[in-house]
């Protein structure tokens, strides 16, 4: 495996998630092609690229929705790279291994529900997937299903309302209320989630994901459909999550206002391949990224000679690969 030892970027030294040589094929279509990138601990990492670049496919592989065709996805709890533990785990048949000060997980081996409950990866969707018929509070309690189930002793203690269950239930409710407050949704706690306006539903999804106490929060286009004021609030919420809980964030986003303002690290995909992997500032000025994003037709709007030259190269590449975008 290509474990690089470069320390040019901070995220290489203390990675939370590494996606290594990930390939996902659907029949003849290669949605993700030999992709490797790293999500640093405590970072906000953005995954960007034109429509059809394979971003959501990467998310689906990370969260167990798809089984990758090839590649390794490693999640780490506790500081450091843990290279030895990762290699040892890869050689064994186990799904994860615990160490004294943490654990390593091979996400591609884990069934979907344990990725949330054990590896502590939570996600939201491009199209909102709340439990519409349940109240906002209940939505957040479902995310705390596992600690509650354990405390309720498979509902026996829950039915008898024993003190052990009552304290766990209170704790869960307190956490739910905390996140409802942070997302300014506390006044809607007992309303069915489907009755909320769109922007509120987006925040409720984030609140629900946070209730599972994730180490990594994966957000698929959280700013889609938000107005400028709402996306500013979203920025603030994401920065609050990072600073308050230390949860690392991996987000797919088209709204460059959000991406550039809050990201520490930006990975750019095009046709399932990585075309840039840099800090936000470096990516902003990367000609390949501009070409992929603006498309070659917009070349006239770019007035830098070097970029034009690059664009022509990009055009040639794009022409041979075909596809959407």
């Amino acid at each position: 495996m290509n474990v690089t030892t470069t320390s040019r970027y901070p995220w290489e030294n203390d990675p939370l998630l590494t996606v290594e040589n990930l390939t996902m094929r659907f029949g003849g279509l290669v949605a993700v092609d030999n992709l490797s990138f790293t999500v640093g601990r405590g970072d906000i990492t953005a995954l960007i690229g034109p429509n059809g670049a394979g971003k959501t496919t990467v998310f689906n592989c990370v969260t167990g929705f798809y089984k990758p065709t090839e590649g390794r996805i490693v999640m780490r709890h506790g500081p450091g790279r843990r290279d030895e533990a990762v290699e040892e785990l890869t050689d064994s048949a186990a799904r994860y291994a615990r160490q004294e000060d943490g654990a390593v997980f091979l996400l591609e081996r884990m069934p979907d529900f344990t990725i949330s409950s054990t590896a502590k990866v939570a996600r939201t969707f491009q199209n909102i997937r709340l439990f519409g018929g349940m109240t906002c509070l209940e939505n957040l309690l479902v995310a705390q299903h596992n600690p509650l189930m354990r405390a309720s002793g498979f509902s026996i203690a829950g039915l008898l309302n024993l003190p052990s269950y009552r304290s766990a239930a209170k704790e869960a409710k307190d956490r739910a209320i905390y996140w409802l407050e942070q997302c300014q949704l506390i006044h809607r706690a007992d309303d069915p989630a489907a009755d909320l306006p769109y922007g509120d539903q987006r925040r409720l999804e984030i609140a629900r994901a946070m209730c599972s106490e994730p180490h990594l929060l994966c957000l698929d286009e959280p700013a889609a459909g938000l107005n400028p004021r709402e996306s500013a609030e979203l920025n603030a919420l994401l920065q609050f999550i990072r600073s308050e809980t230390g949860t690392s964030i991996l987000l797919i986003e088209h709204d460059m206002g959000v991406v550039m303002k809050i990201s520490d690290h930006v990975v750019v995909l095009d046709y399932g391949r990585k075309i840039a992997d840099e800090t936000a500032d470096a990516v902003r000025n990367d000609p390949k990224v501009i070409a992929a994003y603006l498309g070659v037709d917009d070349e006239s709007e770019i007035d830098d000679e070097d970029i034009r030259a690059d664009l022509h190269r990009g055009e040639h590449q794009a022409g041979t690969q075909g596809g959407e975008a």
Binding site: S116, G133, A143
Partner: peptide, 25 residues
Amino acid sequence: KTALGRSQRACEQDQKMAALLGVDV
């Protein structure tokens, strides 16, 4: 009122999402 009942209702509405929140469907 219980966690089991809540996860049953969650599975009723969206099994995949329930699984992603850690519910063993």
